[in-house]
Design a protein around this nucleic acid. Sequence first.
DNA 1: ATTGTCGCGCAACTGAGTTGCAAAATCTAT
DNA 2: ATAGATTTTGCAACTCAGTTGCGCGACAAT
Lengths: 155, 155
Amino acid sequence: MAIEVDDILRRNSLSVTDSRKKILSLFLSIHGALAHGDIERKAGEKFDRVTVYRTLQTFVEKGIIHTIPTTDNSVRYALCKDNCTEGHHHDNHIHFICMQCGSTLCLEEVLVPEVRLPKGFTSSEIEVVIKGICKECNNKKNSPIVETAGLRLRL
Amino acid sequence: MAIEVDDILRRNSLSVTDSRKKILSLFLSIHGALAHGDIERKAGEKFDRVTVYRTLQTFVEKGIIHTIPTTDNSVRYALCKDNCTEGHHHDNHIHFICMQCGSTLCLEEVLVPEVRLPKGFTSSEIEVVIKGICKECNNKKNSPIVETAGLRLRL
DNA sequence: ATTGTCGCGCAACTGAGTTGCAAAATCTAT
DNA sequence: ATAGATTTTGCAACTCAGTTGCGCGACAAT
Ligand SMILES: [Mn+2]
Ligand SMILES: [Mn+2]
Ligand SMILES: [Zn+2]
Ligand SMILES: [Zn+2]
């Protein structure tokens, strides 16, 4: 994994630095998207916030991560799994925001649907964001309720 | 029109004030969406920016306008044409951003497509934003080029 | 190891959006 | 129409995310 991180950086002709390694490995380890704040919290003790901003920006430019727009106007970032390159993203999938656990997921397996535009319009990019309850949270809802120490909990 | 504005405000039990009238009539007169900045520019000479913020917020809460998320993380607002009510928006249409003229449009006639989510996921809201070239701009592209005073212009 | 390039941290700045409060406008009841 | 209660406005002050410039230290090429 440490090797993979170095490799990705080198492949994108980025010098291998502590902050880049740390932030990139965060993305590799987590399943889902990260907001700037998350990263600052998980890696920020060690690095300046400016560095986090600049690193994210660099990663987006290189096509290592992509941004996900949200209704509440806060940007999130996730690894590009398709092979995006410098200046050319083609993450052709939809995004899901769980309103229970708050996690943002790339649904790689769900392709963006065809949309028939009115005559005269031409499209070059389509962004689909769905809000709802994720698989994990739905599973929990159906799991048995446990009573311990006066508390009723779902596992 | 002045009557319509007053009427909409009253129907939503809002007191009829100059700023609300002005901003609402802006939305009624324009075809498309407005960013906060646009409104400040077109109506802001007369009203404080705080008033603009608060007015937009009130209109959104009442279901008079709705927000449109954009990739560049700037919110835009457009009239709700479906009969949205306090706390209950149901603008079931997609949004289009023209990369040439910059305008944001509600494509009321295009319903949001069905999306088949992976097993376990449930959705409650779906947001589709398409970037491209709008009808008008495409038309201009095909219109004849006029040469005047050494300039080459499309009509 | 030397040298030139690049990334980092710091500090200072910018600009969007928010808040509290007193004055002004609107509404309601007489 | 008037007066009093209520709502909205404008101002000033503030917060907080994101940006910029710059000197120092880390990195990569030789
Ligand atoms: Mn994604
Ligand atoms: Mn709309
Ligand atoms: Zn969830
Ligand atoms: Zn256009």
